[in-house]
Structures are given as structure tokens and as C-alpha cells.
Design a protein around this nucleic acid. Structure first.
Lengths: 131, 131, 131, 131
DNA sequence: GTGGTCTAGACCACT
DNA sequence: GTGGTCTAGACCACA
């Protein structure tokens, strides 16, 4: 269900958060759906239960999911809307990265082209590799 | 000369690297130019000499700069070209980020608009802060 | 595990790098193996943790090793291959040194004999000390 | 006359020593020949006179040249023989480097081949670049 | 003066 | 526990 790269610089709990958010934003998971149990997901993706718990707690704090003690963890009603808003707010990251690449001499045209490729899902020079 | 944000999550030595790279890529510093001395920059921007040294060593490893013990630190001949190439290669990061934001529901139009703002230097909703 | 010569002109962190690379190249450590922890190795070979850290960071930059914060430091998958390639590329150093010795009047036969001794591990007149 | 690489890791004074030694060992300079004056060589190769002086002093200490105050610096009578002996002693460097390359996986055959190329003056894969 | 190395000791995020 | 960053202060070789 989730793909974890233990060698990545991105903390494991953050990878979990990102992927669950994407599942929700893309509609693969809907409001009210139950997340896998901490222990179940732990054995499935071979990650320490504490790390899973940390990711779930974080998602709860963000309001993306709702933990119900003794029952489980469920996608919040307004999760998709929240994620979209969060995405818009995160445009500042895109802004900062684009600004840096531009300052390194990458032309605006190349930046726009990369955006188009990301949106359309092509992998021209986007390998998906991070930093 | 350099602006350090001690509250940023970006390590100080990386801020130094980024800003020097930008100075070179924008032509503010040219091949052969001498960088400020480790100790001089240290007192100027109020950062420990070891941190400056770490940044310079990293820039040396990257080939952006050539350190000559006893003489100083100089911008490499092919630094501008290297930086531009590095920037182009880093488009994959932009690709990944744009893809993620799009998956969170951000529309392509918003992404392109952010690119435009980054290139033109406006700060509409790009505060430079992270998400 | 590692032998450090504090009297050598070779920096301690470089001695660490060299010896770990040798362990990997010779198969004593394999891809995926975990390196000793920074603090653990520090007390074992009586070297400051920062010096160990510097060696590990360098190995990470070289791609020989992958550091995962909070988990440890692991031998990269393609480390052995990279090391062998690096060795072949470094033949130019051997070339330069041999050329210099030859220009100083050392006969080719002596050079070949020294190579043989180095390969077979004998220490005839190769003390490992520098000239 | 001498070629100095100010960007090299090898100290300038050491480059001067090396090249003068090579000139003597190859017979380009003979016993009794006068070396260029400190100030003359200084302007010719654009190096600080103190650095030239340091090289000459070092050569004097090695017995390769003899400084005569007020008259100049001359190649010693037994310089060629000394250099040859020094070269033989320096075989330990070749030993150490060969041992390291071998430990990185370079085969003995490749090492011998590189020696042959260095002796015969070919530049197959010997670029002369250092480390 | 320059860069380079090392130590001691602290704090941080993450597992 | 892990690696990563930073500071303070020292010493070295080199120009």
C-alpha cells in the first residue's frame, strides 16, 4: 500500500504522512475510510510501530484524520478540502525552489515546461529522484 | 554581503553555499575571484569560522571553488557552467514537488503563476518560508 | 577494527576513509552492512566524534556510504564497483609518481619490483612511511 | 623554465623543488651550474621571492644545491647521485600507493602496465593529473 | 595573513 | 540509541 524508502533523507514518518495525504487528495481514500491499524501497517511495510504512530498522530493534529481510541483512525470529513488548501499554502515551497533554480541560470521556459510535465504525468527529465 | 537566517531550518553552512552559488551564477562573482577569508566572513556575518570552513570545503568538493591553503579560496574557472548544469539537473526536484502539489489538488494554472512570480521576484504568496 | 596513526601526516579522517574503503573493496564489508556508530567508533579508536563524523560525511558525499539520521550509516549498494572504478581512475597518480621516480634515475626494474612487493604485501623497502 | 600551478594542492615551494630536482636528474642541469637568482626567478614565474627562497633553502639543506652568499646558488657536485638515491628511497611512496590501489581492486597487471607507460613516456591513461 | 585539522562539548530531529 | 549541526578554542603548514 505504501512505499517507504528507508535510505531517503525524508524521515519515514513524513513519507507515510505524504503518501496517505496523496491517497486522500487523489480520492483513493475518502472521508470516513479507516486507515490501516498501526500494528498491521507496521508489519506490512516493515516500519517501527512508533514511527507509524507518530505519522498518525501528526495527521490527527493536522485534522486530516481522526483517531478514535479503541476503534481506529479515520479520514476526516473535510480532509480533501484541507489538503487542497494546504497545497495552495505550500506553493511557497515551489516558489522558493523555482527562485533558486532561476538564480542558478535555469530559464523560465524550462521551469514552466517541467510544471507541464509534472501535471501531465510525463517523466521527460523528471526522474522523481529527490535532491 | 551574505544574509544568514539563524531561525531557518536550512543549516547555516548550506545558506552560505546557496548564496555564494547564486552570486556566481548571477555573475556577481566571476571565475578567479577570491572569496572572503574564512575568518573575515566569520566576523562579518557573526558565524563560527568552522561553519564557514565547512561551507567552503563543500564548495571545493563540488568544484565550484578552489581552496589554496595559505592563499585563499577562489571561484573555479568552470563554476558558472557547472552551476547552470546542476540547476538543469535539479529540475527533477521541481518536477516532484509540482507533481505532489498537483496531486493535492492545486491547479496547473496556480503552479505556473507561482513560477512566474518566482522568476519575476514578486512575493505574492511566496514568502520564502516553508510550508 | 581500524588502526589510526596519529603521528602520520595523513589526516585522521582520511585514514578512516581509506581504511573503510579498503574494508569494502576487499569484501570485508558488503553493500547494506552498517558501519560502526559515530560515537561507538569514537570511543573504540579514541578519536573525537566530530572527526569520525567528518569521515562518514565524506564517504556519504562520495556515494560509498549512505547515512540515515537516527538509523545509522550503511554501505551503498554500488560501493564496491565505485571503488574499483575510482582505483582505476587513480592510476594517473601512479603514472605521475612512477614518471617522477624514473626521472630521478630509478630504473624501471626497481619500479616493477616495488609493485610486486606492494601487491604481494611484502615490506622489503616499503615501510609505508613517506619518503 | 619552471611551470607553477598555483591552484595545485602541492605547495609552490615544493613544485619548485621537484622541478629543479628533475632538471638535475635528467641532466638538463649539471653539477656546478648556477640556479636562476631568487629575484629573477620570482618575476619570471610570478611567485613570491620568499617562496623561491624557501625552495632554495630546502634544496640546500638536502645537499642538492650549494648557496654561496653574495654569489648565488649552484648545483652540488654529487647532486645527481643523491637524487638517484633519494628516488630509490622514495620507492616507499610508490609502494604505498600501489598497495592502496590494489586494495581498491586494481589488478597487478594494470599497475605494471601503468609503470611501463610512465617509463616509456606514453600517456595512455596517465593524464598527469594529481589526486 | 591564509586554509586545514582536531578536540571538547552542546543541542537538535529522528528511531 | 542514531546522525547532523554549531560553537569555542587550539594548533599546524604555507605565503
Amino acid at each position: 500500500m505504501l512505499q517507504i524508502d528507508v535510505l531517503s533523507r525524508v524521515p519515514v514518518y513524513e513519507q507515510i504522512i505524504d503518501q496517505i495525504e496523496t491517497l486522500i487528495a487523489t480520492g483513493a481514500m475518502e472521508a470516513g475510510d479507516q486507515l490501516p491499524s498501526v500494528r498491521g501497517l507496521s508489519v506490512e511495510i516493515l516500519v517501527n510501530p512508533n514511527t507509524i504512530q507518530k505519522a498518525y498522530t501528526e495527521l490527527d493534529n493536522l485534522g486530516i484524520v481522526t483517531s478514535v481510541p479503541g476503534r481506529g483512525c479515520f479520514v476526516s470529513q473535510n480532509a480533501p478540502e484541507m489538503l487542497r488548501r494546504r497545497g495552495t499554502e505550500s506553493l511557497s515551497e515551489l516558489y522558493a525552489l523555482a527562485k533558486r533554480l532561476h538564480s542558478l541560470g535555469v530559464r523560465a521556459e524550462e521551469l514552466h515546461q517541467t510544471i507541464d510535465e509534472a501535471v501531465s504525468g510525463k517523466t521527460a527529465d523528471g526522474t522523481g529522484k529527490e535532491g
